[in-house]
Design a protein around this nucleic acid. Sequence first.
DNA 1: TTGCAACTACGAAGCAGTTCGTATATATTT
DNA 2: AAATATATACGAACTGCTTCGTAGTTGCAA
Lengths: 131, 131
Amino acid sequence: MIAPTESELSILGVLWEAGPLTVREVNDVLNRQSSGNGEKPIGYTTTLKIMQLMAEKGLVDRDVSNRSHVYSAAVAQERTQRNLLSRFVDRAFGGSRSELILRALGDGNATTDELQEIKKLIEKLEQDGTE
Amino acid sequence: MIAPTESELSILGVLWEAGPLTVREVNDVLNRQSSGNGEKPIGYTTTLKIMQLMAEKGLVDRDVSNRSHVYSAAVAQERTQRNLLSRFVDRAFGGSRSELILRALGDGNATTDELQEIKKLIEKLEQDGTE
DNA sequence: TTGCAACTACGAAGCAGTTCGTATATATTT
DNA sequence: AAATATATACGAACTGCTTCGTAGTTGCAA
């Protein structure tokens, strides 16, 4: 599976969130997101180009039946996140998932509800592993 | 803080693991690691160049008192991992740490011991949060 | 129908990271 | 002392990603 680059990922993020969109719409969302910070807006043709390349790579599908092409994510969010995560764990944590989790938890930003949810998942995993 | 690139990170990994080393030693470790896979070995001057740039960036310190310079990590592993993690969570999980943790746990590769350790940490966090 | 706005397509510049050849200096071996 | 091995330094090529200008097309409004 092809790993999306930085900007490809941000575009996928928009498509995952909002469903099929035109280049114009994606570009608007991205610029709405990054305004407020001092970042300069992304040019329309820049977004267009990247989305065209994404279509070639199979990261998005596009519907060409209208003048404004409509793009949709061709890769599932969960699967993509798993892939990225796996690569990241290898790169930054020597392949140790639990090291990463400990580090993420240690950052002290999780809410009680989140902790609860995670604990529940762990208990489920323990059961599956012990039986 | 400066985020290390891919190859910089792999070099830091070696230095974190083994302590201060020469370029030759680092290069050997890297090539020992990546042999076995079909990957072609990293040239000595490539590693040298990267480590020189790292020294300029302040990612490593170097001791020039001998002919073979000795490099050591100038950034702590934990701090660096935290930084990378934070960036990664933003890029791939829309900033949600707990999403990432759930995804990491869901991959089903954690051992019982690891789960135990994580659970302990969660309970500690819960106590801290509730008091 | 003429002109303006919005779209796609595409080439090319720009940039960061990586890789390597080569020049040069310094040890070590014979 | 000469030859050989091993260092550093550095420029330059190469790669992948991003960014943009511009040309050409299509729809819409005056």
